[in-house]
């Protein structure tokens, strides 16, 4: 039963992702991306990583998607479906992406680990994650906060309307 749910989520995830890069309207594309991100959060729950899933929803769906919508609304008159949305290299790009996909699938199929099933042990829990973040990964963790601060300040500086 859970497997069936997973496959449904996986298929819809791919469908939404594909739609978000193909639909004509940019706003629709952003909506599709929202569903894509939500589905990814669902995949995380299947992987026994509920914390990552929650963060995914909080940060991506709650934060980044809002930004995207804002940006789309601020850059008016471009969401019009009549404007060409693809570059001139649509078919070469598609072919290359397809070729890489085929290659990756072949590699995955050829390897035995792809058949590995869920191990009986429980995955890392929230406590372990927290301890790791604040001990072994403390320095990168703090760097991330520094990076976010820099991005914040940088965004304000760049976005300020110069008189």
């Amino acid at each position: 039963m859970t497997e069936l749910v997973f496959y449904i989520i996986a298929v819809s995830l791919c469908a939404f992702a594909f739609l978000s890069v193909t639909v004509g309207d940019v706003f629709h594309s952003a909506v599709c991306l929202t569903f894509t991100l939500l589905s990814v959060a669902g995949v995380y729950f299947f992987l026994g990583a509920p914390f990552i899933g929650v963060i995914q929803i909080l940060v991506y769906v709650g934060g980044i998607m809002t930004l995207f919508i804002f940006a789309i609304k601020l850059t008016a008159k471009i969401g019009d479906a009549s404007i060409r949305q693809f570059t001139r290299q649509l078919w070469p790009g598609a072919a290359l992406a397809g070729a890489i996909l085929a290659l990756l699938l072949a590699v995955i199929r050829a390897n035995a680990w792809s058949l590995r099933l869920l191990p009986p042990v429980q995955g890392p829990d929230l406590k372990q994650l927290g301890v790791e973040l604040l001990t072994r990964y403390l320095l990168p963790f703090e760097f991330i906060s520094l990076l976010l601060l820099a991005a914040l300040v940088g965004a304000i500086v760049i976005g300020k309307v110069k008189k």
Binding site: Q85, F86, A97
Partner: peptide
């Protein structure tokens, strides 16, 4: 590879 719009 194919999107022309910077947001997309």
């Amino acid at each position: 590879l194919t999107q022309r719009n910077a947001i997309r």
